[in-house]
Each structure stands twice: as C-alpha cells, then as structure tokens.
C-alpha cells in the first residue's frame, strides 16, 4: 500500500514540477511587452465595454489613447469629464471638456396621441417591424415601441412605458453611449445636451410629412407650422421639410416655443412647476403638488417629473388665448389621462 502512495506522490509531484518549469519558461519567453500606461488607463475606465466611445471595448479605447499619445477624438461618455481629466493626468495631457449629453426620445406618438390602427404580430424587433409597415399608429417616422433601444442599452437606462408605449430614458443611468441611437431603425433617439439642471427643450417629433398628413396619424406631431421659428429670440429653431428642430447649442431654454406650439410637439422637461396656475382644476393641482412633495429631488423619479412637466406645459398652453378650441380639448384630454394613470399608481 505504501509503495502506491509513494509512487503516486512522486509521479504527481514530478509532473507538477515539470509543468511548473514549462510554464515558467513559456511565461518568460513569450512575454509581450506592453506600455504599462495601457493598464493604468484601462483600470481607470468604467469597464462597461459599451462601445460608446467608438472603440471595441474599454481596453481597446485605452490602447488607442496610449498609442496616439493624445486625447483628441477620445471621449468616454460613461465616465464623462471627470474620468477624462483623470486619464489626462495619467497620460500627462490635458483633456477637453465636453458638455454632458443624454439620450432623448423624439416621439410623442403614445397610445393616446397616435392610436393603433393595426395589430402587429411577430418578433418583438423594431427592425423587423420597420421593414414591414409604418407602424401601428400609421406614422412612418414614429416609435414602433418594440424595444430595440431597450435591448441595446448596456446600462439599463431605457424602458418602454406600458402606458404610452414609448421609451423612457432614465437620465441618471443614461451615459450617452449612443447605442440606442444606432439601434433605433428610425433614428428617433438623439443625444442632446443635458442642459442646466437637466432642463431641456426639444421637438418631440421627427415626422417630415406635410402637416395635415402628420396630424392625421398623431395628434402631437410637428406639423411644420413655423410658429416656433418666428417666436424664438435666439434663432435656435430651424424648419426643414415640415419639421422643426431646436439646436441645443443655441437654445437658451426660454420655453417660448413651447407656448406657441399648436400640437404640443415641443417638450420642455425638468422645469420647475409654473408659479401661477389659473385654469387648471383643483384636483390636478393637488395631484401635482403631492407628486412634488413625494419627490423633492428630481433624481429618483425624473421621468415621472418630466412627464409631469410636459403636462404642465400643456396646461399652460391651454391658457393661451391664441389656441384653437379643438386642440385645447385634446390637450386637456391628455392631461386628464395622465392624471388618471397617476392615481392608479
């Protein structure tokens, strides 16, 4: 018995020793010399491998920086300016500051605004549906709501709302990595400036059809009337192919365009509650106040708040005497619907 134990100990030990020598030799011989800076930069990176920088993963990004020895054209949207500063320190370079960005969904074709005319049956893929038809609401540029953006997001920052059928971006989680922008077959999602205190004003529509056609499919479509262009004091809005676009570099967040938009296609998000509320019924007021008290900081329930705000802007609009009656009605409908859903929650 003993001999067996000894024999096996010796032979196993021998094999182990031999393998160790082999590995040691191989490690010495085939060692790849690498700039230690790559590792350093790589360590600093968030390791999300989202591809938002345009490189195939964080390591690739680090290699790129070290190889070029420059930060030109390199920006990690996840880490943002602080991270770039850190990398600049490692590299002994200076980083260029960039405005933080956030993904913005430019479609208001909710179930309410753009009621479904057809029932889609098939793979839950926007790309597939995009090849098939214009979409349930009939808008050829509208959100299909099948969640290609949700799947593409590596940060779990985008969700499809079950109430509206539209994607909701969680501004806290969103890193502006651009993945959803690429994933959307209709290019609805855009990266925009995060803005001061997350305040943003944008046209929530990309439909280039003629006003009447667009309006037929979606009550919140941009009809290309041009009112906002005239109203804007900063020349920040351009109208092209029946579609208004707000240049976020120029926009000063004055919200004048929001007030004149006849369809409510321009959204202003994360603005504080308007101080004077006149013609809104009491219940809504109470409701929104409660909402405010519950969430004093806008971080947690950002999206809810932004919805809230958009609603607020809608209601504000309905005070506007230049409004035409029918639209007012539909807007009120909108806010009451949101109101109801809020109660359900």
């Amino acid at each position: 018995m003993d001999t067996i134990i000894v024999a096996s100990l010796v032979s196993l030990g021998g094999i182990g020793f031999f393998a160790a020598i082999l590995l040691f030799g191989a490690a010495k011989k085939f060692k790849v010399e690498e700039d230690p800076k790559i590792d350093e930069v790589n360590e600093a990176l968030p390791a999300a491998n989202c591809g938002g920088c345009g490189y195939a993963g964080c390591r690739n990004f680090a290699e790129g920086i070290v190889k070029k020895n420059s930060l030109d054209g390199f920006f990690c949207p996840v880490g943002g300016n602080t991270l770039m500063k850190q990398i600049a320190e490692i590299m002994g370079l200076t980083a260029q500051e960039k405005e933080p960005m956030v993904a913005v969904v430019r479609c208001s074709g909710s179930f309410k605004n753009s009621p479904a005319k057809n029932q889609f049956d098939g793979v839950s893929s926007c790309k597939s549906a995009h090849m098939l038809y214009a979409g349930p609401g009939g808008c050829p540029n509208g959100c299909l709501g099948l969640g290609d953006c949700v799947i593409s997001c590596p940060f779990d920052a985008i969700k499809i709302s079950s109430e509206t059928g539209l994607p909701i971006v969680d501004e806290e989680k969103c890193t502006a990595c651009n993945n959803c922008v690429v994933a959307c077959p209709r290019s609805i999602i855009e990266l925009r400036n995060k803005g001061k205190k997350n305040k943003r004003v944008f046209v929530s529509c990309i439909n280039k059809e003629k006003g009447a056609v667009a309006k037929k499919n979606c009550s919140a479509a941009c009809i290309g009337c041009g009112k906002c262009v005239k109203e804007c004091p900063f020349d920040a809005i351009v109208l092209e192919n029946n579609l208004a676009y707000i240049d976020f570099e120029k926009c000063k967040l004055c919200k004048k365009c929001v007030l004149v938009c006849p369809t409510g296609a321009i959204l202003a998000v994360n603005f504080p509650e308007p101080k004077k509320v006149e013609s809104i019924d009491k219940k809504e007021l109470v409701e929104s106040k409660r909402e405010k008290i519950e969430t004093p900081n806008p971080t947690q329930k950002n999206m809810k708040n932004s919805e809230d705000n958009s609603k607020e802007s809608n209601s504000e609009k309905s005070e506007n005497p230049s409004q035409n009656g029918a639209l007012k009605k539909s807007d009120e409908n909108n806010s009451t619907k949101k109101e109801l859903s809020m109660e359900e929650r």
């Binding site: 057809n118 029932q119 889609f120 090849m131």
Partner: peptide
C-alpha cells in the same frame, strides 16, 4: 376591428 399585420 384592427387588422393583424405580420411578415410572411
């Protein structure tokens, strides 16, 4: 009634 739409 809404028509169903799907790929072939």
């Amino acid at each position: 009634s809404q028509l169903i739409i799907s790929h072939s």
